[in-house]
């Protein structure tokens, strides 16, 4: 009987664990675990179970609450009553009706690359826009400063040098969309900014 008991690990309903749970066997959580779970076997988070950190295992079966990422080597199953706030990654992911999830889901073994690509694209647009405002100001400074302090005149041309490149890009960018489009975008941005300020 002790051998049967020791083969299965159960975190009972009134049990609270603050810390890491690791191992190579199966784990069933009926209680509260505030800490990372990383096991080689299957993990079951029962209806009463609550995990406050990431869970990693072979097959994850969630009927309770998890606030953290779920990473399954084989599968992640969210059954009715599951409440998960965190990302889910596994070759197979199943979300049953009645399960609640807020997070990013990815099936397959590949690391997440699509969000990064979209972020860099989004970041590239403001970079093109900003040099227009910056380029206008340094020109005025460069005209006034060199007469008084020649020493500063050296760094200024360095700052001026990159201007043609951004300007060319901006010109090229402004050529692509016809004139009506640009004012429309600017006015739309101004409206959004005004709304946020209010």
């Amino acid at each position: 009987m002790p051998s049967n008991m020791s083969s299965v690990t159960v975190i009972g309903r009134t049990t609270r664990i603050h810390g890491r749970v690791t191992g190579a066997v199966d784990l069933e959580v009926q209680g509260y675990v505030e800490g990372e779970i990383a096991v080689g076997g299957d993990v079951t988070v029962d209806t009463q179970g609550l995990v406050g950190a990431s869970v990693r295992g072979r097959n994850l079966l969630v009927r309770g609450a998890v606030r953290g990422d779920l990473v399954g080597d084989e599968s992640v199953l969210l059954e009715a009553g599951a409440r998960v706030v965190g990302d889910v990654r596994a070759p197979r992911v199943a979300i049953a009706p009645g399960a609640l999830l807020r997070g990013y889901v990815q099936t397959g073994d590949v690391e997440a690359t699509t969000p990064r690509a979209s972020r860099t694209q989004a970041a590239a647009r403001p970079v093109v826009v900003q040099p227009v405002a910056r380029a206008a100001q340094p020109i005025q400074r460069a005209a006034a400063v060199p007469v008084a302090t020649p020493a500063r005149a050296q760094p200024v041309p360095v700052a001026v040098a990159p201007k043609p490149a951004p300007k060319a890009q901006v010109v090229a960018a402004s050529r692509r969309p016809p004139p009506p489009v640009v004012p429309a975008l600017r006015s739309a941005k101004g409206q959004i900014a005004k709304k946020k300020e209010r």
């Binding site: 008991m5 299965v8 690990t9 159960v10 309903r13 009134t14 049990t15 810390g19 690791t22 784990l27």
Partner: peptide, 23 residues
């Protein structure tokens, strides 16, 4: 039998508190 069992092969680093029995 026992409400909480930490099976062989499982390692817990941290604090465990329970109102029931534990093996």
């Amino acid at each position: 039998m026992a409400s909480t069992v930490i099976g062989a092969g499982i390692t817990i680093e941290g604090e465990i508190a329970t109102d029931e029995d534990i093996v």
